[in-house]
Simulated scan of single mutants.
Amino acid sequence: MRKTETKDEIIQGLMTTINNLNEEISLLREQVAYLTQKLYGNHQNKLLYQDKSVYLMKRILIVTKMRIFPVETEEITYHRRKHKAKRADILEAFTSEKVHHQLTGKDLLCPDCQKEMKEIGSWSVRQELLKIVKAPVPKAPLAHSYGSASIIAHTLYQKYELKVPAYRQEND
């Protein structure tokens, strides 16, 4: 401050600074409200200003101020791998057969109207597996137990013959 300034000039300068700061604070509050609304969504459909032209002018100022500080964006490019046609390759290894079933005698007649039936279509059938043989499951040595006979025998051998404690058996 200069010594030649009067108190009135100092007060006037401080008042203009206060007014400028108050206006900047109101703009920053509006910007925070706008960004909060963008982030969390609109909960109330109220305008901050009754005069829409003032509201739009303030919005334009906020947007232009936001453009001064651009948001950095990073572009990620990657290539997705295509699914390999594994199933088609496996099925190509098998030969397809054309199976044609021909009806004769009574089977050729319709059971409802007793008229002769005719062929309405054909398709090729691929014979992949002839027969699936399922082995019988051995009976469990202990009812409702997950342990097989060999696991139970190994555990008993370690426990009573080798004197290995249970906590060391768990570590094995």
Rank of each mutant, 00 (worst) to 15 (best):
E5P: 01
Q114V: 09
A166P: 10
Y167F: 15
L142R: 03
R126F: 05
E74H: 12
Q114H: 08
R67K: 09
H79F: 15
I76H: 14
Y160N: 04
A143E: 11
D8I: 04
P111A: 03
P141Q: 01
R59F: 09
R59S: 07
A149E: 15
T104D: 12
E72W: 08
D172N: 09
V32M: 04
L129V: 15
C113M: 01
G105R: 00
I152D: 05
G41L: 00
T64C: 10
N20H: 04
D107M: 07
N42D: 06
I151P: 03
R29W: 06
L61V: 10
R80L: 15
K159M: 02
E119P: 04
H100E: 15
D107F: 09
M15Y: 15
Q44F: 06
K38C: 08
I68F: 15
K163P: 05
C113Q: 00
Y49Q: 03
L39S: 02
L47Q: 08
Y40F: 11
M1N: 04
Q50R: 07
K86Q: 13
K7Q: 09
R2F: 10
S96A: 00
E9Q: 09
S150W: 09
E30T: 06
E72M: 13
I25V: 13
Y40Q: 04
M15P: 04
A143F: 10
L28Q: 04
H100T: 14
R81G: 05
K106H: 05
D172Y: 11
W123D: 06
S124K: 14
L61E: 14
M66S: 10
G121N: 12
I152Y: 02
A153Q: 03
A166N: 11
A166E: 13
A85C: 02
S96D: 06
D51M: 00
N45K: 02
L14M: 05
Q114W: 03
R67M: 14
L108D: 06
Y167M: 13
S124N: 12
S145P: 04
Y160C: 01
Q44C: 03
Q114T: 04
K65C: 03
T77P: 02
I151M: 14
L108R: 06
A140H: 03
Q102G: 05
E170N: 13
Q12C: 07
A85W: 09
F94P: 00
K98A: 03
L35Q: 07
T77V: 10
H154T: 06
S148C: 14
K115R: 08
I10L: 09
K38R: 07
V32Q: 08
K58F: 02
L162T: 01
K65W: 06
P138N: 04
Y49C: 00
E97W: 07
K82C: 07
R2S: 08
R168I: 07
P141T: 02
A88G: 03
T16E: 07
L108Q: 09
S96Y: 05
I90N: 09
E24G: 01
E30H: 11
V164R: 04
R29M: 08
R67N: 10
V54Y: 07
V63Y: 11
E92D: 14
Y160Q: 04
Y157T: 05
E92L: 08
S96M: 09
K134L: 12
D51V: 00
L130Y: 08
T73A: 12
S124M: 11
Q102E: 15
T6E: 01
N22S: 12
Y49L: 02
E75H: 13
L56S: 07
T64S: 15
I120M: 13
Y55P: 01
E75C: 06
S148A: 03
E170D: 14
H154S: 14
G121K: 02
I90E: 14
